[in-house]
Amino acid sequence: MVVSCEHVWQEISNYLEGDVDAPLRSAMDEHFLTCAHCKSVLEGTRNVIQLYSDERMIEVPAGFGRRLEKRLIQNSRVSGSRWSSWSAWLVPVAALALATAGLRLANSMTFSPPIKSELAQPAKDIPPDMVVLVAAGTRVFHVAGCGVIHNKDHVRTLTAKEAIREGYVPCIRCLRKYVENASAGHVALDSEAAADLDDDEDGHGGQ
């Protein structure tokens, strides 16, 4: 098998890789014995590979290693050794829990009615299904027949549970027993209701 110079040049890289078949390798070996040009190309190419494969040819900017180490250490602290491998799942679980809680809070805030009184709190042990009356423009709910209902022309009927949910507070006259059963925290509630009643009474001249 005889090879031309052009053929040798095209295969010289594969030759140096050991990636030519035996007949071609033999033919190229023969060629190098007689062709100074191709021999020069072979030696030069081999020298190029040898030089560039030397680690000294890889230059890095000053301080590169230090900066890399610093960043890796910072990263290691964040995801760090104090985090054992089993606890890695805690992060997504905690995130999910927070998201769920946030969603619930958002829902409750979205769907709850506006509070009628900043001090409004449900009275203790009041039957949730008790039918009560609320009048427009007031903050107090009453049982039917209560003598201090203000604005009687604009009352509506609902349950105690609904009234409380809407932010109304119980009348301290007609619903006193429930208010009195309430905790000490309801003192302010009583005062609020009383003030509301006073307003009602003032407006109506004591019905």
């Binding site: 052009e6 040009h37 020069s40 190309v41 020298n47 040898q50 030089l51 000294r56 040819m57 230059e59």
Partner: peptide, 29 residues
């Protein structure tokens, strides 16, 4: 398209020791 070597003069080997010199590394880079 193919590539043909242009320089056919005897190759003057650049020894690895030459890499100690910064200007040699610079030229290779």
């Amino acid at each position: 398209t193919g590539y043909a070597p242009r320089e056919f003069a005897d190759w003057r080997e650049i020894p690895s020791e030459a890499l100690e010199r910064k200007e040699v590394r610079q030229k290779l880079s």
